[in-house]
């Protein structure tokens, strides 16, 4: 039987580790997006269990797929962190633009 709670916990730890250098509000958003992703994986895990029980997947194949899920979790966490960093850059660009606008308004 696949321990889904363990997978969720592992993923949460992965996300926390990856987001340690981000602001709290961005960290929270990243964690929530990530947890939504892993909840969506529950159907995969259930299907694999059923395929294994029906003899259509070997034990080795099941183990491989579980490890692939773990790798996919890491890929998703990297994506979420990257999107959070892009949001930070967009905010910084907006602040710089506002400052520029204020200076040029002051000139005119």
């Amino acid at each position: 039987m696949i321990n889904f709670s363990l997978i969720v916990e592992e993923f949460r730890n992965e996300l926390i580790s990856l987001s340690s250098d981000l602001r709290d509000d961005i960290k929270d958003a990243l964690l929530q997006d990530g947890l939504d992703f892993i909840e969506g994986s529950k159907a995969d895990l259930e299907r694999w269990s059923n395929l294994f029980a029906a003899g259509q997947l070997s034990r080795e194949e099941l183990e491989w797929l579980l490890r692939s899920k773990r790798d996919l979790v890491e890929m998703e966490a990297l994506k979420q962190k990257g999107l959070a960093l892009a949001r930070i850059d967009r905010y910084r660009n907006a602040v710089t633009q506002s400052a520029l606008n204020a200076v040029f308004k002051g000139i005119s």
Binding site: L65, D71, L72, L83
Partner: peptide, 24 residues
Amino acid sequence: FFISEAKEQVGHAFDTVIGLESGK
């Protein structure tokens, strides 16, 4: 059966690469 399931995972993995790039 294994190929079908593995393709799902690999496809999603590529989607994370594509998703990150398009979000920059």
